[in-house]
Structure formats: structure tokens, C-alpha cells
């Protein structure tokens, strides 16, 4: 396990990250500005928060493509509650609860139907987004209470955005959870061979629901930060996030077939994508075009993964033959 924690993939990501920083600094004189760099974290902290539980899900051979819709649902319901005069803690709590419930619902359905989570979460992707859209319609919610902006707009000690700090703490918690606890070991076991894990007494279905619920919870958290930062919720909030989140996870070296991946890798990928998109936005590349780069990176990352496996198998077998 320890050897896997700093694999070739993480080293490669590290150098890529260095490359992106150098390239960006060369392309735009504004890139290496401390304030700019700090502000760049706003563009990815929320998605990166969701990437953490998504990594656990994918390691456990599941996937949740409904995350963006859960964020939208949470954000819209917070908007409704804010209009009804809810206080800041109530809003945050509401979002976390709705997110957890939506995630747990995904997990329960996956368990109950015995169908792959892709299919189920494609359904709930439409369902959650649809509910959110039918509530907000073509209007928007902007009536958040004054203190609400603290989550997404406040800086601690003048420099550190609250958002970013929350993300860093979450990363540490997830890293410890995955790499040093019994739960982490069992998640790897489920992802490597769910049947064998079940035969060994691992409550696979319970872990599945818990992981989906955890993903929903983090979506709820991300929704709080996002709504707070934008202080406005419209029907297209968080569209396309599922792809960006999955890209962060897969680029971070999490095997799409389950059973392998590290939080360190995901963190490096988060910064890689975050700084790349920030750099591109500095040179005025529109968001939808950035998606082209992200999509290409996703496909390239998996192609590399497949290629690496192929080479390793190839080398391994030729070693054995001689």
C-alpha cells in the first residue's frame, strides 16, 4: 500500500503541474501574482470538494454522474428557504441534509435494483435537475441573508479564502480516511473485488449507501459555498460539473475500473486542472472552450492509464519469459 501512495502517476502529475505553472507564467504576466493565485482557488475549490468522495466512489467501482444536479437541487432549495427568511446556519444545514438525502437515495436505488450506478445516476441526474429547474424556473434566487456570503467570499487572516481552507481540511480528512483506516482498506477491497469482499464479511451494500450519501453531503457543502460565492441561484447552476469532477478524479490516477487511486493524485489533478483553467481564463478563453481542453485531458488521462497497463503487462510477461 505504501509503495502505491507515491506512484509513477503522481510523479508525472507533479511535473505536469510544474509545466502548467511555467507555461501560464510565460503566457500571462498576471498569473504569478499572489492575489491572483489565491483567487484562482475559487474556480475549483467547490468542484474539488466533490472530487474527494467521487474518488472514493470510483475506487469502490461506483460512479455518481448526478453530482451537479444535487448541487443545483441544494442551491435552489437554499434559495427557497432564504426567501422564506431562513437564517445562515439553517440554510447550510438544509443544504447538507438535502445533499445527503439525495446521495443516499442514489445508493439505495443502486442497491435495490442491482443495476450499475451509471444508469441509476443518469436517471437521478435528470430527476434532481428537473426538480430544481421546475422550482427556480427562469427566475433566480438572490435573497440570501447578509452573513451567508462568509462561506464563499470571506478571506481568513486577509489571505486565505474560507472556501479554500474548507477544501484543504476536507482533503486531509479524506486522505486519512482512505489511506489509514479500516474503512479505506475495505473501500479498496470492495473496488478490487466486490464479491470477495462480501464473502469476507465486508458489508458491501452498506458501504455503497454510505459512499453515495457522503458524496451527496459533499455536494451539499459545495452548494453552500457556490451559492454563497455567487449569491444568486439560476437554473443552469453547476452545469457540466459532473464531467469536470470525474476528470479531476480520473486524471488523478484513480482507476475507472475501481480498486486503485490516491487522494494525493486527486489533489495534484485538482491543482493541475484548476491552474490550467485559471491560466486559460486569464488569456480570455471562454468556459465552453475550456471544456474542450478538460474533455481532451480526461480522454488522454485514461488512454495513458490503459497504455501504462498495457506496457506493464507486456514488460512483465517478457520478463517472466526470459
Amino acid at each position: 500500500m505504501k509503495i502505491r501512495a507515491l506512484g509513477l502517476w503522481e510523479v508525472a502529475l507533479f511535473f505536469l503541474l510544474a509545466g502548467v505553472i511555467v507555461l501560464n507564467a510565460w503566457l500571462s504576466p498576471y498569473f504569478l501574482d499572489v492575489y491572483n493565485l489565491i483567487d484562482s482557488t475559487f474556480s475549483f475549490s467547490e468542484k474539488a470538494l466533490i472530487a474527494l468522495p467521487m474518488a472514493l466512489l470510483i475506487i469502490a467501482r461506483e460512479i455518481d454522474v448526478s453530482v451537479a444536479s444535487i448541487v443545483a437541487l441544494c442551491a435552489v432549495l437554499m434559495g427557497v428557504a432564504a426567501d422564506a427568511g431562513a437564517s445562515v446556519p439553517v440554510l447550510a444545514l438544509l443544504s447538507l441534509c438535502v445533499g445527503t438525502a439525495a446521495g443516499a437515495f442514489n445508493g439505495l436505488i443502486v442497491n435495490a435494483l442491482g443495476v450499475h450506478s451509471i444508469v441509476v445516476t443518469i436517471g437521478t441526474l435528470s430527476l434532481y435537475r428537473g426538480i430544481a429547474v421546475s422550482i427556480v424556473r427562469d427566475g433566480s434566487y438572490t435573497g440570501f441573508p447578509g452573513g451567508f456570503s462568509w462561506f464563499g467570499q470571506h478571506y481568513l487572516w486577509g489571505y486565505v479564502p474560507v472556501e479554500f481552507l474548507i477544501y484543504v481540511i476536507a482533503t486531509l480528512i479524506f486522505g486519512v480516511l482512505l489511506h489509514t483506516t479500516n474503512h479505506g482498506r475495505r473501500i479498496y477491497a470492495i473496488g478490487t473485488n466486490p464479491d470477495a469482499a462480501r464473502y469476507s464479511g465486508v458489508p458491501v451494500t452498506r458501504y455503497r449507501v454510505a459512499l453515495f450519501a457522503l458524496t451527496g453531503f459533499m455536494c451539499g457543502l459545495a452548494a453552500v459555498l457556490l451559492a454563497s460565492r455567487l449569491s444568486s441561484v439560476r437554473l443552469d447552476i453547476a452545469t457540466g460539473w459532473e464531467l469536470q469532477v470525474i476528470t479531476m478524479v480520473v486524471l488523478g490516477g484513480v482507476a475507472i475500473a475501481g480498486g486503485a487511486g490516491t487522494i494525493l493524485g486527486v489533489t495534484l489533478a485538482v491543482f493541475l486542472i484548476g491552474l490550467l483553467t485559471f491560466g486559460l481564463s486569464l488569456v480570455n478563453v471562454p468556459g465552453i472552450v475550456m471544456n474542450i481542453y478538460i474533455g481532451c485531458m480526461l480522454i488522454a488521462a485514461i488512454t495513458l492509464q490503459r497504455g501504462a497497463t498495457f506496457v506493464r503487462l507486456h514488460l512483465l510477461s517478457s520478463n517472466k519469459e526470459t
Binding site: T180, N182, R185, T192, N193, V202
Partner: peptide
């Protein structure tokens, strides 16, 4: 398919059913 988790080490395979019993709380 059911007996062992092949990519796991001997260690991780043998301890899997009773991680809770031998762990420090939730930690390995």
C-alpha cells in the same frame, strides 16, 4: 473470484474479515 482479493497482499487478505477487531479504533 470469491475467496481471495488477488491484487491484495497476503497480509491484507488475511486481516480483511477482522479489521475492526485488530485495529486501533477505526485506524489500521
Amino acid at each position: 473470484h470469491h475467496g481471495a482479493i488477488l491484487p491484495f497482499s497476503i497480509l491484507a487478505n488475511i486481516s480483511l474479515p477482522q479489521l475492526d477487531r485488530i485495529g486501533h479504533g477505526i485506524f489500521l
